[in-house]
Design a protein around this nucleic acid. Structure first.
Length: 891
RNA sequence: GGACGCUUAGCUCAGUUGGUUCAGAGCAUCGCCCUUACAAGGCGGGGGUCAUAGGUUCGAAUCCUAUAGCGUCCACCA
């Protein structure tokens, strides 16, 4: 009877997905234009690194954005989701350097210009991979607006921002102790350092006090830095060492004489109470050095090896080799007092993966305090909302303790700092003025002070985040004003991970205030981290990160999207496994098959819009499902607006599977297969209406399959689903009475099914059903429904029904159901069943009556609650009596 | 050291304002079914003193306090 070729039995996503993505693009549905008639809805993508490929984290993040933008599009907003990629200065440079190394080349050999050529080639080759993958996922980005953080326009934005901040005095150059990554040989920001606990040692060293035979003992985790010591410090009030303050020690190995100083910083309780001070290689010692005017002795080369400031035997050694050699040298000298095991936390370079060095160098910094002020206020005042809100505290803490930001990097791939230095003219005049750097958006032709053309540009590039912090304004036309910029900025929602709250979120807020005078976005949704089932982070080295493309090949993009949305509670980490995607896949298949049913069974049935149906012709089930649909719509809207996507997905899932498929479709089968034309039309029209409502609600989550099914079910004047109107909940369809009546019928059917199942009645065998009920009106008018779904032959509903012999009993509400079973009945089984029911009801009854016997409860609880409990007690007593009576018939 | 989060069925997790519908879902498990959309399915069953101890309340998975375990972030001790 069914034509298998018309619609397959199993949903096959592959060609459906490709076909629809192409069609949507051709129709220009993704592109947003300035349109004063409509309210804009904007998102900017957190630009993935050009070097990257799609991870499960990206799937989660971008699915959420697509869900948001698709719903907004259906709600009639002018949508614009700007995509793009990040040049990822240090990450990309590291990869290109590795690639060169494989070819036997290296960046210093080929020089800056040549290196950048390689980098651009690399970018052109790999940069589009993740973009392709996002398309595969179904992301409805405005691809005509795709940007790259180093394209020409964006470059100009970054440089302009630098110049403006310099002119405001917020960007300055200074010599400071910075986090130095010896692997990439560049400074990095505080945020790019990750601390890890490491098993190390604490070495106690004896430093001889000059002109005395005494020693002071200092403890250190880094003995090699003793080569750069320029003092020993003690606490000023420490009685043990008071007499030594102002004296000096002679450093072993270098024989340098350094003073013993007093400073509150020293904790007398720790170690020996004496601290060696290495101002050029430790942040605390740096402060000490400044306070006490000590020498800053830099002992390291940029690659982490020891330089010429140390005795010859140590020169050129790597810092870790030097440590070993220093330890054995002092041991031989007899000044190694003691060695202890010691766990300490060491900062590692996020990209380089090696321990960072506090390293004295000249860098560019951005003063942050002033920039932070409006940004703090915006979040505090809820002008920007965080979901979940507990991130506010983290944000505020960082913002109120904000440090100046080291923005220069000793790298080549990135935005080269727009600063030039004059090397003086031939005459050699105006040397003084030439010391001022020339900071300019345009490349200067000559020195404004002396006219020399011998200018040299700063070698360094900017931190990646000093470009991506402009993303919301930079992807449009900034620094140029335009209608577009004003129309699409601020954006509505930002979806990102909490791991970049400081790197990116906080800085974007500061940038938009600084350069555009307003917030960059109104809401920030922080996703959780995606982990494996053991709770471990996804990582390449663990091999536990699944390939999203492989998953999409196997299950379809919709299944992947829906599966992950179903398990992504707001702000909670997500334990991912393929099983989740299977749930998505199964649901898509369910959806496919219920549509298949409608398409195949409705071939010759006329469909009418529900609004044109005569209300009086609607069946109880029709009213019920329409009421449920409308409740679902408003529940979906509610959880959507609260950014609770997992809840939203779950509601659609439950309604579709349980209400629509398991009940409504089963219920209407008798009408559809029957011979009354009018009934067919009504049931089928309602079913199609509900189905289309489901497709609309689900479209943001599963765009491909819903569009495909929509096309097959839609009537001519309807548009493509992607731009169809989002469903409105029609309050008029909400029908409490029908819901109550239908629920009663569901209970009767389930009750009968349970008994049949427990009594092992084969499904092929139908039985009669007697219902004793004072109020059987609603049941009687739905006889057919009960008969079909409960496999009943004769249905007798009367207040005075006699209990047939050899029957099983079920109590539903106030009704007694009797199922005559003839010889199939197992009396012992039925006895056990009933007595279990009796004792369980007995237990619940006594708990309710205890409650009602409690004076305080009756006095203090709201009236409705007490009334409810009273009614409950009454019903329970009645039911208990019925059960007991029926039990007695079995004796 | 500071901040935040988590602990509910064998597993993975929902549970928004305390009170019918609060103890739920999926997977797993057990029983019966290839019933003309779907076995990636249908029907039915079993399974939890909601981490622990106190407290608030007539009433707590839900609010408060403490404890334990797990996790994340920030600061950092030479």
């Amino acid at each position: 009877m069914f034509f298998e070729d018309k619609i397959s039995k199993v949903y096959d996503p592959t060609q459906v997905e490709q076909r629809w993505y192409k069609k949507w693009l051709e129709q220009g549905y993704f592109h947003g234009k300035v349109n004063p008639e409509r309210k804009p809805y904007t998102i900017v993508i957190p630009p993935p690194n050009v070097t990257g490929s799609l991870t499960i984290g990206h799937v989660l993040n971008n699915t959420i954005q697509d869900v948001l933008i698709r719903r907004a599009r259906m709600q009639g907003r002018e949508t614009c989701w700007v995509p793009g990629t990040d040049h990822a200065s240090i990450a990309t440079e590291t990869m290109v350097t590795k690639m060169l190394a494989q070819k036997g080349s290296d960046k210093n050999k080929i020089g800056r210009e040549e290196f950048l050529k390689h980098a651009w080639t690399w970018k052109d080759e790999y940069g589009s991979l993740i973009i392709k993958q996002l398309k595969r996922l179904g992301c409805s980005c405005d691809w005509e607006r795709e940007r790259f953080t180093m394209d020409d326009g964006y470059y100009r934005a970054v440089i302009t921002a630098f110049v403006q901040l310099y002119e405001r005095g917020l960007i300055y150059r200074g010599t400071r102790l910075v986090n130095w990554c010896p692997a990439t040989q560049s400074a990095i920001s505080d945020e790019e350092v990750n601390y890890r606990e490491v098993e190390g040692k604490l070495w106690y060293l004896k430093y001889p006090v000059t002109q005395s035979d005494q020693f002071v003992i200092v403890a250190t985790t880094r003995p090699e830095t003793m080569l750069g010591d320029s003092a020993v410090a003690v606490h000023p009030k420490d009685e043990r060492f008071k007499h030594l303050i102002g004296e000096s020690v002679k450093l072993p190995l270098t024989d340098r004489i350094v003073p013993i100083i007093a400073d509150d910083f020293v904790d007398p309780e720790f170690g020996s109470g004496c601290v060696k001070v290495t101002p050029a290689h430790d942040p605390n010692d740096f402060q000490l050095g400044k306070r006490h005017n000590l020498d800053f002795i830099n002992i390291l080369n940029p690659d982490g090896s020891l330089n010429n400031s140390v005795p010859e035997t140590f020169r050129g050694l790597d810092r870790f080799d030097a440590r070993k050699k220093v330890v054995s040298a002092i041991d031989r000298k007899g000044v190694l007092e003691n060695t202890e095991d010691y766990t300490t936390s060491i900062g590692y370079s996020e990209r380089g993966g090696v321990p960072v060095e506090p390293y004295l160098s000249e860098q560019w910094f951005m003063a942050m305090e002033e920039l932070a002020k409006p940004a703090i206020e915006a979040v505090r005042s809820q002008q920007i909302k965080f979901y979940p809100s507990h991130w506010i505290k983290t944000y505020e803490h960082w913002m109120t303790h904000i440090q100046d930001w080291c923005i220069s990097r000793q790298l080549w791939w990135g935005h080269r700092i727009p600063v030039w230095y004059c090397r003086g003219n031939d005459v050699g005049q105006c040397q003084l003025e030439c010391k001022e750097p020339i900071v300019s958006v345009e490349t200067p032709e000559s020195c404004p002070a002396c006219g020399s053309k011998d200018l040299i540009q700063d070698h360094d590039v900017l931190d990646t985040w000093a470009s991506s912090w402009l993303w919301p304004i930079g992807v449009h036309t900034w620094p140029d004003e335009s209608d577009e910029l004003d129309y699409f900025h601020p954006t509505d929602d930002l979806v990102t991970g909490p791991d970049i709250i400081f790197f990116w979120v906080a800085r974007m807020i500061m940038a938009s205030f600084e350069f555009k005078g307003e917030v960059p976005f109104r809401n920030v949704y922080f996703t959780g981290m995606v982990r494996d089932m053991k709770g471990r982070k996804m990582s390449k080295s663990l091999g536990n990160s699944p390939d999203p493309i492989g998953l999409m090949d196997k299950y379809g993009a919709d299944a992947v999207r829906f599966g992950i949305m179903l398990i992504a509670p707001q702000g909670q980490d997500i334990l991912f496994s393929e099983e989740r995607v299977e749930i998505g896949r199964n649901f898509m298949n369910k959806l496919w098959n219920v549509s298949r049913f409608l398409l195949l069974s409705g071939e010759e049935i006329e469909v009418r819009p529900v609004s044109e149906l005569n209300m009086d012709d609607l069946d109880l089930a029709d009213r019920w499902i329409l009421s449920r649909l409308n409740r679902t719509i408003s529940a979906v809207d509610e959880s959507f607006d609260a950014y609770r996507f997992n809840e939203t997905a779950k509601k659609i899932y439950d309604f579709t599977w349980s209400d629509f498929c398991d009940w409504y479709i089963e219920v209407i089968k008798s009408r559809l297969y029957g011979s009354i034309k009018a009934e067919k039309i009504i049931a089928y029209s309602v079913a199609c209406h509900v189905m289309k409502g489901i497709l609309k609600l689900l479209h943001p989550f599963a765009p491909f399959i819903t569009e495909e099914l929509w096309q097959r079910l839609k009537i001519d004047e309807e548009r493509d689903l992607i731009v169809e109107a989002w469903p409105e909940d029609t309050a008029a369809w909400i029908d409490n009475i029908s819901e109550g009546n239908f629920c009663e019928i569901q209970e009767v059917i389930t009750g009968v099914r349970t008994v049949r199942s427990e009594m092992n009645i084969p499904p092929g065998i139908r039985s009669d059903l007697f219902i004793r009920s004072d109020d059987g009106q609603s049941l009687r008018s739905n006889e057919r429904l009960i008969k079909d779904l409960a496999k009943v032959n004769d249905l007798i509903i009367r207040p005075d029904v006699e209990r047939p012999s050899k029957s099983a009993t079920v109590i539903v509400g106030k009704k007694e159901l009797f199922i005559p079973m003839g010889d199939l009945i197992d009396i012992e089984n039925e006895k056990r069943r009933l007595s279990e029911k009796i004792s369980s009801l007995d237990r619940r009854l006594s708990s309710v009556s205890a409650k009602l016997n409690n004076h305080d409860f009756v006095e203090r609880a709201p009236k409705e609650v007490v009334e409810r409990e009273r009614k409950k007690l009454g019903d329970m007593k009645e039911n208990l009596a019925k059960l007991k009576q029926n039990f007695s018939f079995l004796e």
